[in-house]
Design a protein around this nucleic acid. Structure first.
Length: 571
RNA sequence: UGCCCCGUCGUCUAAUGGCAAGACGGCAGACUCUGGAUCUGCUUAUCGAGGUUCGAAUCCUUGCGGGGCAGCCA
């Protein structure tokens, strides 16, 4: 291996330009139609509008791929806009992680980075306009009273006693709200719509609340903050977004957004709702993810078991795999739960083509080849990637004492077991056929601690040995040359497909992480870098963890290989 | 029991009034110096009832089922 590390970075480099989507969906149909009718003069302009109050997860990735993908495929634009209207929950840490994740996924917002807070003054002026036309009023009801007056799902609400306030008084009060003359929560600005509307969003929704909190961008400039429902449509309008794509729960809010836009008489984007992503064996709500972090059930937002972008990245997922997944699950208005097996398949599909192969023994069992020269040493050729021969071959050292996988030896082999057992033969990958002649056991426990074998010198890989074939091939590492490593085996975070419900925390899988120490890996791995991905032959795809150091290697298992033996054995 | 949204293989998505298709999963086999990859085959679906139509997964009515909405959250 000429340049260790460099070669293994093959599957971890800078994101390639995202491919065009092959699939159509109802949103593309709408856009095609709009293009045909000239609704937006041929423009396609989308936006991804996260609130910086948590880390992005795979569900956001679906939205990112959708919005940026549309812009890419229709030669349009996609903005990144932070919906930062609630300073009580938002932090710059989240802003930074979000930008990092979007970039890592392979998307570029160019010079179109925006914040709802960029428009606070404009929004204030818009509000003044609505007050001026009698379409908004200052309300002195407190939060509890507002709730009482709102009515219920089946009963209409009642008008606020402040609903009839004269325009001049509203203007004055609203300016004084901004000036900080009233305490938090004492007053709100409300839209004057219809307290009897069957759509609760239309029952005089709050536009502004008084809230003294330091905003991550505007500091203490403001003590009133716009509600999302008031801000969002106008932000889209200001940015001349054509197709404002959001999740299903905002369907009922669309009439409100349209009401604001009409009342203001400004440009109107077309809102289109789609079903958010759900995934089996995990949770997706930010609230629950935050709890997992706070309860210490995971090590952080970027724990490799988390469905966050940063977690998936740490786990070893590639941007390409995630983008492909987003493409393959499609987009619809159907509430659905995608199978995590599809996500895993996307990763295997990507890494199979790109990840270098390497030999690593996770649970070492000592194997001695009795008829191999004590001082013997060979450098054997091993293929770096059978799917891509341009990646060449490397040398791996072979000697008398090796480690093999404990799983690859059975003293009493079950039927259809193709690996090593007493008296049986097996091929050592890229080396010789060996035969097990006896085992050495721990006298106290009876556990097999060493396997003694003989090898067939004429069976070396590459030689044309007449008709010599054995059923199994196993991987190995030369004991004297092996590097020690820690390997973290990850499994699904939850034990059940749908960990919804009240007791979801008890469903966290105790097997979601297994840490293995004293693993043996081939010497070429000495100088791998964090994020390098590779296949450990016959085991799975692994990724160098951020905590890995030269001399203290740490690998994460991203996903296992398909294992048809495991299926047989389960039966 | 108000308003809104949604019901197609086990799962996800197509079929845009004209042969219900693909992917994942599952099962079986071929091949294999990774029980990997690859290849082949099989498996299984239009929620029900009416209506419109030569023809309905698609349009209409209705029933049933699932989901969302009563934050000064987004």
């Amino acid at each position: 291996m000429t340049k260790p590390g460099a070669e293994h970075a093959a599957a971890g480099g800078a994101p390639e330009s995202p491919d065009r989507s092959e699939h159509k969906n109802f949103i593309r149909d709408i856009i095609d139609q709009d293009l045909k009718t000239g609704k937006f003069a041929g423009r396609v302009h989308t936006r991804f509008p996260p609130e910086p109050n948590g880390y992005l997860h795979i569900g956001h990735a679906k939205s990112i791929c959708l919005n940026f993908g549309l812009a890419r495929d229709y030669k349009g634009l996609c903005n990144l806009r932070f919906d930062d209207t609630n300073p009580a929950r938002e932090e710059v840490e989240y802003v930074e992680s979000i930008m990092n994740d979007v970039r890592w996924l392979g998307f570029d917002w160019g010079d179109r980075l925006f914040y709802a807070s960029d428009y606070f003054e404009q929004l204030f002026q818009f509000a003044l306009r609505l007050i001026g036309t009698g379409k908004a009023y200052v309300c002195d009801l407190d939060a509890d009273q507002v709730r009482e007056f709102r009515g219920t799902l089946t009963e209409p609400g009642k008008d606020s006693p402040f609903r009839g306030r004269p325009v001049e008084e509203n203007l004055d009060l609203f300016r004084r709200m901004r000036n900080g003359e009233f305490p938090d929560g004492s007053r709100t600005l409300r839209a004057k719509i219809d307290m009897a509307s069957p759509n609760l969003n239309m029952r005089d929704p709050v536009m502004y609340r008084i809230l003294r909190a330091t905003h991550h961008r505007t500091g203490d400039t403001w003590c009133i903050y716009p509600m999302y429902d008031w801000a969002h449509g106008q932000c889209d309008s200001i940015e001349t977004v054509t197709h404002s794509i959001c999740t299903l729960e905002f369907t009922d809010h669309r009439p409100l957004y349209d009401w604001f836009l009409d009342a203001l008489g400004i440009y109107r984007s077309q809102q289109i709702e789609f079903a958010r992503l759900n995934l089996t064996y995990t949770v997706m709500s930010k609230r629950k993810l935050l709890q997992l972090v706070q309860d210490g059930r995971v090590t952080g937002w970027d724990d490799a078991r988390m469905p966050t972008i940063s977690g998936l990245r740490r786990r070893g997922y590639t941007p390409e795999a995630i983008r492909n997944f987003a493409d393959r699950i499609g987009v619809a208005r159907n509430e659905s739960t995608s199978d995590v097996a599809l996500l895993e398949d996307c990763l295997r599909d990507d890494l199979n083509k790109r990840a270098p192969r390497v030999m690593a023994v996770l649970r070492p069992l000592r194997l001695v080849i009795e008829n191999y020269d004590d001082a013997g040493l060979e450098e054997l050729d091993a293929v770096n990637n059978p799917e891509d021969h341009s990646k060449g071959v490397r040398k791996v050292p072979f000697s008398r004492v090796l480690y093999i996988e404990r799983d690859d030896f059975r003293e009493n082999p079950p039927k259809k077991y193709f690996r090593l057992s007493p008296g049986g033969e097996v091929r050592l990958r890229y080396a010789y056929i060996i035969k097990c002649v006896r085992v050495v056991k721990d006298k106290a426990t009876g556990e097999v601690i060493e396997v003694r074998c003989t090898y067939d010198p004429g069976s070396k890989s590459g030689m044309q040995q007449s008709g010599r074939r054995v059923k199994g091939t196993i991987h190995w590492v030369s004991a004297a040359h092996a590097l020690e490593a820690e390997v973290r085996l990850y499994d699904r975070l939850f034990t059940v497909e749908d960990p919804g419900g009240e007791n979801w925390k008890e469903l966290v899988s105790p097997h979601s992480l297994e840490v293995l120490k004293g693993c043996k890996v081939e010497p070429g791995l000495a100088r791998v870098q964090a994020q390098d991905r590779m296949q450990f032959e016959r085991l799975g795809y692994f990724c160098v963890d951020d905590e890995s150091r030269e001399g203290a290697l740490v690998f994460n298992r991203a996903v296992t290989l398909r294992d048809s033996w495991a299926k047989i054995e389960r039966q």
